[in-house]
Design a protein around this nucleic acid. Sequence first.
DNA 1: GTCTATAGAGGGATAGAC
DNA 2: GTCTATCCCTCTATAGAC
Lengths: 204, 204
Amino acid sequence: MEEQIKGGEGLSTEEKFKEAARIVFTKKGYAATKTRDIAEQAGLNLALLNYYFRSKERLFEIVMIEKVQQLFAFMAPVLNDPETSLYEKIDLIPVSYIDMLLKNPDLPLFVLSEIKNNPGRFGKMIQANGNILQSSFVRQLAEKKKDVNPIQLFLNFIGMMVFPFIVQPVLQAVVPMSEGDYIQLLEQRKMLIPQWMKMMLAGE
Amino acid sequence: MEEQIKGGEGLSTEEKFKEAARIVFTKKGYAATKTRDIAEQAGLNLALLNYYFRSKERLFEIVMIEKVQQLFAFMAPVLNDPETSLYEKIDLIPVSYIDMLLKNPDLPLFVLSEIKNNPGRFGKMIQANGNILQSSFVRQLAEKKKDVNPIQLFLNFIGMMVFPFIVQPVLQAVVPMSEGDYIQLLEQRKMLIPQWMKMMLAGE
DNA sequence: GTCTATAGAGGGATAGAC
DNA sequence: GTCTATCCCTCTATAGAC
């Protein structure tokens, strides 16, 4: 019975601030973001930001927890599922993960930059997602390819999905590419990454 | 006969500021860097920074030009050399590029973040390195593997070298790893990346 | 060229009316 | 809960003595 479903777009004031903060923080990073930017993006009064969240810092932390979850925990259930085979994981993950990243293209660079600026603080958030070394996926990698450190292959797998988003601005400066071309490139990767991974696992 | 070779460490005052700016900007990014940080890092008076460089913005631009060159132009001569074969390029580049990144681990995340924050401004710097699409390397890729967009393979090649540096803080939070283990991982990649690239080029 | 002192703007946060 | 007004500190940049 609270005010959760009122206001211009059916969002509570608090939720409007959070949504604005997600947009502005993700786009500009913590240091370059002004609380006035967030209030303006939300269409709300600046003083209300402190009323609801007490400080820029605390609002940022709320957003970061969400974003770290989104980036890291998204694929955790699949990686840890002992029921699916290695190849099933390799086939399935790129489709859903690239789709998620297409909807959140700024997410990886934002999260990785902020973690670098404050490793101690956000390192714990990542560890909360369970030990990747003991995940089903990494164990299956080690079993399948005994002569290569599974971390190496894991890095390649994640990197092939994430790296194109990190270099997007550079790629579009270097290679004349429309927005559609870029999306097409990413869509192709959903099929190509599983193929490449299988080649790396089969290689002599 | 100027003062180029004087001062505590044989550097001119101007060069001390530049060196300090390289360190602080690269570590914290433009927005989070304070001119006081740079002056302190340089062991010099703050007012001198403006005397020599007029503004934080202009000092930053000087550093950025260097860093963009370092990240992008470093491999351009090899990529464009029509004398070396595709496989020679694939064998040689990871060794020197990973060595360079080991000496400048913060470089990729710094440059890519700042470009994202200001694509228009720094896009021109990148384009100055010549059209990668017409480079010898990309033409050789297209020739060798006609059924895959060479940009896809180029992205993999660069990503396999650069991505580990971008996720370093995350990797060390997720996987208990000493500094030595991490360097060992990167050293192995010098050999592994050429192998992986050849598998991707050979695959049916 | 190098310093101290300070101007001046920006931005996070709060007081207090409604 | 929401607003206006404003505090106050931080940070960039400059003035002016040496």
